[in-house]
Simulated assay, not measured.
Amino acid sequence: MVKVEVERFHLEFIVQEDGKLLRDFLAEKNISKRTLTAVKYDGGQLLVNGFERDVRVPLSIGDKVDVFFPPEKLSDGLLAEEGELNIVYEDEAILLLDKPAGKSTIPSLNHQFGTMANYVAGKFRREQIPSTVHIVTRLDHNTSGLLCIAKNRHIHHLFGIQMINATFKREYEAIVEGHVAKNDFLINEPIGRKEGSIIERIVRGDGQEARTNVRVIDRFEKNGEPFTHVALRLQTGRTHQIRTHMKWLGHPLAGDDLYGGTKHMISRQALHCTTLSFYHPVSGEEKVFVSEVPKDMKQLIMEN
């Protein structure tokens, strides 16, 4: 019997049919060739009924297959730091956080320290979780709300498949300037980088496909100025997609001065990720998580 280190991320499967090779069985479980190579050479293990086996071994009904993934090293340039994390949900595979506005998701030239990734790396170090930080859903510095992190590169890969298949769903609420005319519609406009800027995006014909569903929750006025409270659902995940699409529509986000909004009502872009829904990459169970709109947006919405 092979002794296995318990701290490594581990998946267990029971074989349901005879004759299939282990490598084909694992491919059906969406374990990539790259991951299998890492398992073989970087400190992982493949066990069948408790014994280490080659990927060419044939399987039988009832066999138990264990995949022990190799420990991961922290990404280059990511410093583990101690900091506050608002944890919404956590298990052996995923970590779900509620990110405040004014915190970057990952380090950048302007925000190298104190990011959510730095704090998650600190948590992993403190709890001896042998993983780097795999961001599944990235939020801009001044966007608040739900943030999903995978605890293993294979889990990140499985979430990527869900993104492609549109079974991973992201919903936001925002306050935009002006009264949006239609109640429920789709913006299907490609997005690309604005010439001369490394940050700003625009709608452009040669950009990447980008689709955003928009639904009006309420139209209101504040100090005589028109605003619209909207719900948005991303069908794609381009950088600054919501901000770019709403500017293109002629209704920039309140507080978003990079994309034409003004800050006299709110000091940051009024955008919050309210809902994440997906199928758990290990159990297959449907998961739905909801985060309330924060105080600064509520004040703008309610006090009118």
Rank of each mutant, 00 (worst) to 15 (best):
I202A: 08
N49M: 06
H251E: 07
F9G: 00
L186W: 11
E285I: 10
D206N: 13
E92F: 08
T115N: 10
Q235Y: 12
F68R: 14
R201P: 04
L139I: 02
E177A: 13
N152T: 01
Y41R: 15
Q269I: 02
A166N: 14
I87F: 11
G160W: 03
M297C: 02
G43H: 03
D140K: 05
L36P: 05
A174Y: 03
I301S: 01
A117V: 10
N152I: 04
D76K: 15
I266D: 07
V88N: 09
S60Y: 09
E189R: 07
I191R: 04
E286Q: 14
G83D: 14
F168R: 01
Y259P: 00
E171H: 02
N304P: 14
T236C: 05
I161R: 06
L109D: 15
A181N: 01
L95Q: 10
H134T: 10
G77D: 10
E225H: 09
G237R: 04
I94F: 09
L253E: 06
V288N: 14
T37W: 14
L139W: 04
D257R: 12
N304T: 13
E92Q: 11
V88T: 06
H245P: 06
E72R: 00
P281R: 10
T132C: 01
V65W: 11
G77N: 04
V176G: 05
F168M: 09
H111S: 09
L74E: 13
R153Q: 13
L22A: 12
H229G: 07
S267C: 03
G50P: 02
E82Y: 06
D98T: 00
D218Q: 08
V15Q: 01
F124N: 12
R56K: 07
G255L: 01
V290L: 13
E225L: 11
I161Q: 12
T228E: 09
R238Y: 12
E286R: 13
S75H: 10
H154E: 15
K194S: 02
L74P: 12
L253I: 08
H141C: 00
G145S: 03
H251D: 03
D296R: 00
E286G: 11
T275Y: 05
V57G: 08
R204C: 14
E5N: 09
G83L: 07
Y41L: 14
G192K: 02
L276H: 01
E5T: 05
L146V: 05
V2M: 12
T132Y: 02
F185V: 09
H111Y: 14
G62R: 09
Q208W: 00
V67I: 12
Y279S: 06
H156I: 01
M265Q: 06
E72T: 03
G224Y: 07
E84T: 15
T228A: 13
L59M: 01
L258H: 00
R243H: 11
Q241W: 06
R23D: 13
G50N: 05
I87P: 10
L186Q: 04
N223K: 15
K182W: 00
R233F: 04
M163V: 07
I175D: 06
E195Q: 12
E171D: 07
E195V: 08
G160P: 04
V2Y: 03
C148F: 13
T239I: 06
I187A: 00
